[in-house]
Design a binder for these strands. Structure first.
Lengths: 205, 205
DNA sequence: GATACAAGTCAACGACGGTTGACCAGGAAC
DNA sequence: GTTCCTGGTCAACCGTCGTTGACTTGTATC
């Protein structure tokens, strides 16, 4: 999309634009499927600049991945300890995040890339499992990992695969079930705040 | 790996070899990251043959995906209705399946590919969710979808991402939790066959 | 204003990937 | 034996991609 006239010289801003565009592209497709020329076209800049701004395609990818996922840190995502709140998280995005890039899609689409796996593994451990495990009673690590894994699977089904049985129409059926799942992991029993089938409920005391 | 001497002429067998090798390659990396020359090398055949045997790379990919996932049909995987059995499935592979290709890894690594998404969506619906939903009481579709999604997330964490908090050492902590999750989805309450904390258990009658 | 450096463009290189067409060999049908 | 089809090889084409180096232009400093 180089239109002929030169763009204003602002190295810092251009670098940021490149990083954002790269993250978006890598999130839409995979590492191998996105070309530097695509990113350059998005920013409106020459390919050579994209390359030189971050040294290599791989370095750009690593920085984009780290940058896009970290601000979405699960610390806030997991600041709740209610199964119902976690279930809501399965359907809604973080409101207070600039949602230019879906970090989950970026992670999923990056799994096939050679160098990305260790990075993703580290991010999952430090940003998702770690913070949650600290505030859960034993076995905290297992609970946190399981919550993250289930949330991951649900979001992939919903947002990446777009499984039709998981669209918004199914939400009334699904959200209570999901709340029960997380509540079971957290507290060892389904969500008490609702009663789908009273005969299955434990007596209050 | 063309060694000079010609290979015995058996079109049917060679086609099968190509398909298997393709599925394995696509499962290890992504669609874009694997080349026809890699597959040809595995089989010990010329690139042109690989191409012509299935018309194009994309057609080969589609056939490999469909072939690798369908035999692993979840009909048997979901022939159980016990949360504990499903939890075991989260850790163990189908014993009665020739485990040349991990269909899950193939699906995950194919998500980024342009043409693969509708196919994967269809496979998930017809092979995983559909069969299970039939034998569950309402809301069967929601329950089946949620089970598939959680199983998907758990297996990705374990086998693809290889999250360390999910390796075999963690199995004693994890498996009961997972059993509770599936039991909660299936029956609305945690697994009755164990008692982690008796005070949380429902009375038998 | 001269200078120096950063920001950006341009054109090309080398490698690789999917695809194609010409060619060769085995084997069955006639 | 000839013919013909299929399985298979070989070599090349063409596009794309990451990368590089030379060049240009804006901007800040002295």
């Amino acid at each position: 999309m180089t239109t002929g006239e030169r763009r204003p010289r602002d190295g810092r801003a251009t670098r940021d634009l490149i990083l954002t565009a790269a993250a978006r592209r890598f999130a839409q497709r995979s590492y191998e499927a996105t070309g530097l020329r695509d990113i350059a076209c998005d920013v409106g800049v020459d390919v050579a600049l994209v390359h030189r701004a971050y040294g290599s395609k791989e370095k750009l990818f690593v920085e984009a991945l780290a940058h896009a996922v970290r601000p979405a840190s699960a610390v806030e995502m997991f600041s709740t300890e209610s199964g119902a709140d976690l279930a809501r998280r399965a359907f809604e995005d973080d409101p207070e995040r600039e949602t230019v890039v879906d970090p989950l899609a970026l992670m999923v689409h990056s799994i096939a890339s050679p160098g990305a796996l260790p990075l993703i593994r580290r991010i999952v451990a430090s940003e998702f499992i770690g913070p949650l495990a600290e505030r859960l009673e034993a076995p905290g690590a297992a609970k946190a990992t399981l919550i993250a894994a289930c949330l991951f699977g649900i979001r992939i089904f919903r947002d990446v695969l777009e499984v039709e049985a998981m669209n918004d129409d199914a939400r009334p059926d699904l959200e209570p079930l999901i709340a029960d799942v997380f509540s079971t992991i957290l507290f060892g029993r389904p969500d008490r705040s609702r009663s789908s089938d009273p005969t299955n409920e434990c007596p209050a005391a």
